[in-house]
Amino acid sequence: MTVASNATTIAMRGASRGTGTVLIAALLLAVAIAAPFVLYPVFLMKVLCFALFACAFNLLIGFAGLLSFGHAAFFGGAAYIAAHTVKVWGWAPEFGLLAATAVAGAMGLVFGLIAIRRQGIYFAMITLALSQMIFFLALQLPFTHGEDGIQGVPRGTLFGLFDLNQPLTMYYTVLAIFLGGFALIWRTVHSPFGQVLKAIRENEPRAVSLGYRTDRYKLVAFVLSASLAGLAGGTKAIVFQLASLTDVTWQMSGEVVLMTLLGGMGTLLGPVVGAGLVVTLESYLAATSLPVPVVIGCIFVVCVLVFRRGIVGELLHRLPKRGH
């Protein structure tokens, strides 16, 4: 069994449920629009940033079968780029985000070209090692300001029209960015390109024998995933007005794996649910004396041992099967 293969077939069945899906989507959208009037916008924005990050990660693990253990490099690296361009170079936030996304994509291209030369477990180790290199660079390069990070990043005015210092304006901007990223992932997964990715995940030699240049497909998926992770990281830097070492550590790479695993690998909504849960749990734990890594580690172990479908995967699995 490949990772999450079951979950995806189920998810695809779920996606073909037509009207039900549209209703659920409309409901979720309404919740997302109304949410800042009930919960803290900053908390919600954090959830959305991590949700986009997890969705980008899930594109690789859930739909192409590639476990990247180094996605923090794109997330955190892009955060530094956004913070630097906006704060030091005085760019408008939209250009800062574009630069962050582009740099993350370029990093993804380089990482991808190197890591795709090996498969499976080696792929995970190589991406982890490369991202650790980015961590050391972030620690040593002058523009990242080492342990301090880049602080006091101005939120600025989006397109010269929307003042992002208003919490609600910022929130709806982040929501729009998230929805844009999510839609792109949805479109990718349901395109012929996405089908080829799934074929590669299920049986790569067979995809090769059918004439697909699988390395190219994997590379494009990797660059796309890295760019979206970068977009999420850049957005986080603008929202929290901070880019720091935390976002480039291997723990962050592990965290996004956990969000995806907990929510359901290979399901579209799983990473969103997982991100919401993990962010909520962490802000809850921060107020207690429980050590966060131990709790996170325990959830990891339990998920791997007995809950491999994740929450959304498990829900979809239990729904009665209706006609295709």
Binding site: Q251, G254, P291, V292, P293, V294, I296, G297, C298, I299, F300, V301, C303, V304
Partner: peptide
């Protein structure tokens, strides 16, 4: 996960 638990 085990590494996180031990280290934490």
């Amino acid at each position: 996960g085990l590494a996180l638990i031990l280290e934490g």
